[in-house]
Nucleic acid binder design. Structure first.
Lengths: 221, 221
DNA sequence: TGATCCATGTCAGCGATCTGTCAGCTTTGC
DNA sequence: GCAAAGCTGACAGATCGCTGACATGGATCA
């Protein structure tokens, strides 16, 4: 889980980084609105903590630009205590939750957890792609209705590809999501898992795009 | 099954804890609204018993905040006798049931059972899964119609899995719901209970999904 | 009070499975 | 045709989960 913290007060930023870091999240920080907008638009975060009062471009504008660009990353907005109008505006602009300042760090952590949990519980738990079907609830995979037994790693790999079906996913991206990027893995490890997965699912289930990565066909939609 | 009791009168709280505890639930208590909100938002309970008159933050506000945050935990609200308006407000705020004070403990227990049963999508207190049948009211389990005697812990483990049949339940989740999260147990404790349970129910009654957790097959629905 | 029983946690050892690595092979793109 | 990218099967260490034996501690009953 990767989180971007947008906060211009360095003391508060450091506090937040410490708290979220201790809770096991990978945290990055930026201190002004322009940089925030750029990072949020180009990088892939699971959640963004966004202060509204920022240099260069205010938080609400940043949020609106993200949403206008179709970025649906979860956003937790930090508002000044009692600034009711700001809060309403924030929600209109597409914030997923807000937290009035000042706040206790525990409270922030609770909100972050709740948001991530909530977002994970959305939609159906079944993803279909061609002959493949993946049920996240039962953690079960079938091919043409026939159950297939996968190891945990194989399952996670397939789940990630199917969550992003129709898109080519690069090896670095896969490695990061399977292992967390602390790496120390031969590139070959991924290929080995792929091989085992294909043997179970059929060779044509996952396509290789030489030089780019892997993809599961769109199939049913 | 893990229940949070939010009640500021220590005598009543103790009574409720005793009653629910005797019925086999894992019970935790808090005495004020802020703590209640925090716990309900961060921890994962199967049901929350919520008194409305609380220090620091009143029950209704707590409930509204949970719902606003997307927490769908079952909530049983305790209202003052005849406070009809409160009752309506409670239901508006997202309570699943209410109980006017004062009440007899049996009545509370019945409501709690009914709510939990209902949430499992069942009309009766009996859950079926394949050859297994679990009667929550009598705390009785049969396999192919033959009664099986279970220890309290074994029963709670099976009950939780059957309430969530068809889903893979992870060891941490099971530990949390069996023990409440306070004390540290060796991971092995759970495995030991599983082994004893399987010996009584038959090896295939509960499936292990290596690396993920345990599951009871969907079976009859 | 003491003896006994039962429930449950802990431990150690065992299989089985998983998964990273390697070496050699095949395919692809130029 | 060549080099790089990707695939594959074999292997071995690591990990996971299961089991039986034992220890503990609380409840029950004499």
């Amino acid at each position: 889980m990767r989180i971007l913290v947008v906060e211009d007060d360095p003391r508060i930023a450091a506090d937040i980084v410490a708290t979220l870091g201790a809770a096991g999240y990978v945290v990055e920080t930026v201190g002004d609105g322009e940089e925030a907008w750029f990072r949020g638009d180009t990088e892939d975060y699971d959640l963004i903590v966004l202060d509204l009062g920022l240099p260069k471009m205010d938080g609400l504008s940043v949020l609106k630009r993200w949403r206008a660009a179709g970025r649906m990353t979860l956003v937790l907005v930090l508002t000044a205590r009692g600034a009711w109008a700001e809060r309403v505006e924030g929600i209109d602009a597409g914030a997923d939750d807000y937290l009035p300042k000042p706040f206790r760090m525990e409270e922030l952590l609770a909100r972050v957890r709740a948001l991530i949990r909530r977002s994970a519980g959305l939609g159906t738990s079944v993803i279909e792609a061609g002959p493949l079907s993946l049920d996240a609830r039962q953690m079960r995979v079938t091919r043409n209705g026939v159950p297939v037994t996968l190891s945990p790693l194989e399952y996670r790999l397939l789940a990630y590809l199917m969550h992003h079906k129709g898109r080519v996913v690069s090896p670095p991206e896969l490695l990061e999501h399977l292992y967390g990027d602390d790496d120390a893995h031969e590139a070959n490890a991924l290929e080995a898992v792929m091989a085992r997965l294909r043997k179970k699912l059929g060779q044509d289930s996952i396509a290789t795009r030489r030089g780019f990565g892997y993809a599961v066909a769109q199939g049913t939609e």
